[in-house]
Write a protein that binds this DNA or RNA. Structure first.
Length: 294
RNA sequence: GGCUCGAUAGCUCAGUUGGUAGAGCAGCGGAUUGAAAAUCCGCGUGUCGCUGGUUCGAUCCCGGCUCGAGCCA
């Protein structure tokens, strides 16, 4: 199975992608492939970017990272925010630099949106604006929907109007650019045709019972292995970083609001739900080659 | 041993004055280009403990049994 990818890697300066749901074994596979392909690993996980949360976010441990180059792990302070655009601005030059040294970048991670930025490029849209978002968040959803409908009826028709995030973002684009979000998005859509054909990568697939068992094992190991200490040690955490699965649950445990058993089960459930959403995302990325494991 | 209460979805429970049942959580499916481990949409998945009886019809009423909790011995 792996030899096939070694061959394709040899023909062109390519980037190899290893995707899949959380706890599916991406990191281990990435390490093995990096050895075979003379590659270097590039993180594509939105939360493993944060520093000091290796255990909570199931990032490869430092001893593993020292075997061969691992990039973009623990590079952002938990008090900071990040987004798919800034991830792309870090990852793209890095990948080119790795290639310039004759190495194969092996991108691995489970953040579908971040991966999509890397594979299909950014749309010509403005970065989110915290101040504007705070203003929009303070207004009723119907109000935002009405404004979006008047500014950009095409975008309103395509947007899931019950989803405040999506409505808010569409409106944000219109307000920040003075243009129609729908028009800007159409530009990008037309640019991205054909890109998928040039991409190489796999998505790890496991049965649900297998994946759920692996999640349970990992959650237990995290809680036993220092995740609680990591959370306890954080003093300043961005609203972005605190969204990490397990963060809220461990905070509740530390505050005595829930017991260890409840904490573990809440994290398990949230992780299972996340894994399911990841599977849904990667199912749509048809350029990925499914690899059934387990 | 006697009495009382309970037994309904994977879990916690509601309900049907008799017409085969519904919430939350879990689960399953989906959307998703700058918050994405986020956010949102859709779906009830069932021998109503077992067994007799009454009834046109029982998850519901009656008897017996099983299991669980409590009280009395």
């Amino acid at each position: 199975m792996n030899s096939r990818f070694c061959e394709t890697a040899g023909t062109d300066p390519i980037v190899f992608y290893i995707c899949g749901p959380t706890a599916s074994g991406k990191s281990a596979l990435a390490l093995e492939m990096a050895r075979q392909l003379d590659g270097e690993i590039v993180n594509a996980d939105a939360f493993q970017l944060y520093r000091g949360l290796d255990i909570l976010t199931a990032a490869p441990p430092v001893r593993e990272r020292s075997i061969l180059p691992h990039h973009l792990y623990g590079v952002i302070d938990p008090s900071e925010k990040t987004d798919a655009g800034s991830y792309l601005r870090m990852a793209k030059p890095l990948i080119e630099e790795i290639q310039s040294r004759g190495k194969t970048p092996i991108v691995t991670g489970g953040s579908g949106l971040y991966l999509k930025f890397l594979t299909h490029g950014p749309a010509p849209l403005p970065t989110g604006d915290d101040k504007l978002r705070a203003e929009l968040d303070a207004r009723p959803l119907e109000d935002l929907v009405a404004q979006l409908r008047s500014l950009d009826p095409v975008e309103a028709a395509r947007t899931a109007l019950q989803n405040r995030r999506f409505v808010s973002r569409a409106l944000e684009i219109c307000l920040l650019t003075g243009q129609k979000a729908s028009a800007l998005r159409d530009q990008w859509e037309s640019q991205t045709r054909e890109i998928s054909a040039s991409l190489r990568g796999i998505v790890i697939q496991r049965t649900r019972p297998d994946l759920h068992a692996r999640i349970a094992t990992r959650t237990k190991a995290m809680l036993d292995g220092g995740a609680i200490g990591e959370v306890a040690a954080l003093t300043k955490v961005s609203s972005n970083c605190e969204k990490a699965i397990g963060f809220r649950e461990i905070r509740a445990l530390l505050a005595g609001e829930i017991d260890r058993t409840a904490c573990e089960e809440l994290i398990n459930a949230a992780t299972r739900q996340y894994a399911k959403r990841q599977e849904t995302w990667f199912r749509r990325e048809q350029w990925l080659d499914p690899q059934t494991v387990g």
